[in-house]
Computed example of a mutant assay.
Amino acid sequence: MLTHDDVTVPDAIDCFRQAADLPIQYWGFKDVGLTTREMEQLVGEFRSAAKTPVLEVVSFDEKELLDAAALAAHCGVQYLTGGEFSQAVRERAHSAGMRYFPFCGRVGGSPIELTGAPEDVLADADRLRDLGADGVDLVAYRYTDGDPIQLAKQVVHEFGGDKVIVAGSINSAERIQLMHEIGPFGYTIGGALFDGTFAPGGSFRENLERVVDVDATVDGGPR
C-alpha cells in the first residue's frame, strides 16, 4: 500500500516506479491524498507494469463509498477493499468487474478499531458472504476485545483463506511469518515501509526489498 496514516503518499507514483521491478503483484492506495488525475496515472502505472491495482477505503458513509467505487471503476482498479458493506457498492463494484472485500466485524473510530466478540466477527463474515461479498478485509491488529492472531486464524478457518485480506500493522518479520502460518489471501503493508521499520534509515524501496527477502524465506502464503 502506497499509503501512510490512511492517506496515499504524495509521491506514490515515484515510489512505485522505484520499486516496480520487485516481485510484488498487488499494489494499493487510498481514495484520499491524490487528485483523480494522479490516481488515474498511478493505476495506469500499475497496469503498465502488469500489477494488480487495489483501492482500500476507510469510510462508513454510503455516499462516500459509492463515490469511491465509481472512482475505482473509472481508474481501472481490480479490487475494492475496506469500508462498511453496502449492497449498492457491491453491485457497482461487480458491474465494473471488481472484486469486493469490505470490512468485517464492528469497525469504527479514528484510528479505526475492530471490536466485539470473536463469534460476532465470524457471524458478520458469514453475513457478508451471504450478501455477495467476494471476501472480507479484516483489520486484525486493530482488534481490541481479544487476541488478534486467534481471531485471524478463526476467520480464515471458517471463511476460507482465499477470501480474507488482513489489513494494517504488519510491521515486523514475525508478523509476516504469522501471516504465512494463518494463510490469508493477502496482507497489507503501508506505513511501516515509509517509517523505515524493516530497513531503518532506508528508502521505501529498501524497506520493500527487506519485506521481499523475509517473505521469500517462508514457504507458501500470501504475496
Rank of each mutant, 00 (worst) to 15 (best):
H157D: 12
E158V: 11
E158K: 15
E158W: 12
F159V: 10
F159H: 14
F159K: 01
F159I: 10
G160T: 08
G160A: 14
G160H: 07
G161K: 08
G161N: 12
G161V: 10
G161L: 08
G161C: 09
G161R: 08
D162N: 15
D162W: 03
K163I: 02
K163R: 10
K163Y: 12
V164E: 06
V164F: 13
V164R: 06
V164P: 09
V164N: 10
V166K: 00
V166Q: 09
A167D: 15
A167V: 14
A167Y: 02
G168M: 11
G168A: 10
G168R: 08
G168Q: 08
G168C: 15
G168L: 09
S169E: 13
S169R: 10
I170Q: 07
I170H: 04
I170A: 05
I170E: 03
S172P: 12
A173T: 08
E174A: 14
E174I: 09
E174T: 15
R175F: 11
R175W: 13
I176S: 06
I176P: 03
Q177V: 14
Q177A: 15
L178I: 14
L178M: 13
M179L: 14
M179D: 09
H180Q: 13
H180A: 11
H180T: 12
E181L: 15
I182S: 06
I182R: 05
I182E: 04
I182D: 05
G183I: 11
G183R: 11
P184D: 11
P184W: 15
P184R: 11
P184M: 12
P184G: 09
F185W: 11
F185V: 04
F185R: 15
F185K: 13
G186S: 10
G186F: 00
G186M: 11
Y187S: 04
Y187R: 00
T188C: 15
T188D: 07
T188L: 04
T188E: 11
T188I: 07
T188G: 09
T188M: 07
T188Y: 02
I189H: 02
I189A: 06
I189F: 02
G190F: 02
G190Q: 06
G190R: 00
G191D: 06
G191T: 14
A192W: 02
A192P: 03
A192Y: 01
L193K: 01
F194P: 01
F194L: 14
D195G: 00
D195T: 09
D195W: 14
D195R: 13
G196Q: 06
G196W: 07
T197E: 07
T197K: 09
F198I: 00
F198C: 01
F198A: 01
F198N: 00
F198K: 00
A199I: 00
A199N: 11
A199M: 08
A199S: 09
P200G: 05
P200M: 09
P200C: 07
P200H: 06
P200Y: 05
G201S: 09
G201V: 08
G201H: 08
G202D: 04
G202S: 04
G202E: 03
G202A: 06
G202L: 06
S203E: 05
S203W: 02
S203K: 01
S203F: 04
S203I: 04
S203Q: 02
F204D: 01
F204A: 01
F204G: 01
F204S: 01
E206K: 07
E206H: 03
E206C: 02
E206N: 05
